[in-house]
Design a protein around this nucleic acid. Sequence first.
DNA 1: AGCTCCGACCAATCGGAAATTGGTTGAGCC
DNA 2: GGCTCAACCAATTTCCGATTGGTCGGAGCT
Lengths: 233, 233
Amino acid sequence: MHMMNDAGSNRSIVTQLRAFLAQAELPEDGRLPPERDLAAALGVTRTELRKALGTLESEGQIWRHVGKGTFMGNRPTDTLSDIATLARRTNPAELMRARLIIEPEIARAAALTATPMHLTELRTCQARTREAATWRQYENWDTRLHRTIAEATQNTPLLGMFDMLNALRRAVTWGRLRSNPVKPNADHHSFAEHEAIIDAIENRDMNGAAAAMRAHLQSVERNLLARQLDIGD
Amino acid sequence: MHMMNDAGSNRSIVTQLRAFLAQAELPEDGRLPPERDLAAALGVTRTELRKALGTLESEGQIWRHVGKGTFMGNRPTDTLSDIATLARRTNPAELMRARLIIEPEIARAAALTATPMHLTELRTCQARTREAATWRQYENWDTRLHRTIAEATQNTPLLGMFDMLNALRRAVTWGRLRSNPVKPNADHHSFAEHEAIIDAIENRDMNGAAAAMRAHLQSVERNLLARQLDIGD
DNA sequence: AGCTCCGACCAATCGGAAATTGGTTGAGCC
DNA sequence: GGCTCAACCAATTTCCGATTGGTCGGAGCT
């Protein structure tokens, strides 16, 4: 009977724990008491409690983390760690394709919802890219310009996805040094293209904004293929 | 001449500050000394220094933040790539808008790149949703169907963004119990709509796939507005 | 009046020590 | 062998003091 005892007592503790969790009111984040307190409260050993918690965790009912605590529900997926693994599985060409699919639609949405504030910021970014003395500065303002377009959609999930794309871009490009010490030429293709995008957004021309963004990204892609150095624009 | 004096001294301090910044070597993050120290080092008042810093900031050369310090370059855009914080700032309606913008384009791309393997899996998912005995099972297969479409794009970043959208969906819906104990009706609108999407993908009809997906999501959206309970489909 | 300077204060932030927490190990005891 | 207990470990949070950009008000100067 001793072997039955193990499984039997373990299961009983699990059910006891389930009952406690159903009864006890948890804080907003679903965190439950520390193992040491919980063990004392239930009148069992920490070892026993941990075994019960282990089964509950394997069932996906709870999740635990050192230093944080034990929580109800599914372990939250953190995007940042995914970025690193995603970056390892992709490449600049694939990323460019994703941008070509997503960003025109973002521009289209922005044309519908952009406020005057967004437009002035877009114009400012555009002017700053023209004034940029170094390539680094140009990149900063260019990135900000594209992000402002995403902000203009006034859609949080969309903005989040754009940020994710950007983070991926940085991760993939990471380590590759830009080999252009000079500043962009005055007739750099992006200037006119950016202008076309902003104009379309200002005119609430959704199709035009999407088309202009697509043309811009295709131009960037051509540049990328030619130089095979970086995926910035 | 007194009025010229103001602007003159101010400008001289700005140039003095510019010279200092060009000469002084800054730490990696581009942070420059605290205002109090910098004022002492330049032999000017903090008030004067702050005025000069203000003009430099308006020019976009530096950015400042309380408690952090003053830095060279552009103010970094705070990327909200954390699912939890993202979920807190959004709502089901906004999420639905994002899905309506993104997922049709994913379907369009899938129509171009889907392999026979993807198509058989799509058909399997479709069949399983019809056979589902509980709403929970239906949801599982429905989710997998949509994800298979994203996989069919064979584009890692795109798939990652789709997963992010899904995680957001779960996070936003978190805590709200589904109030449908019964299984979906045999004539549930999704069945025909899913079929239309898969057919279009199979026929390499990109526009058709995008349109079908859009129609499907709009149908889901109508359902959502009617029930105002959940954002699943 | 219109400034500038100076000191004090405020709220946001950083830094580091101390406490907390899940995970692990090993000795002692059935 | 299993079980318990205590100690320890590493990750994380929490707390507190110091730092920092921003602000206010009075004194002094033109």
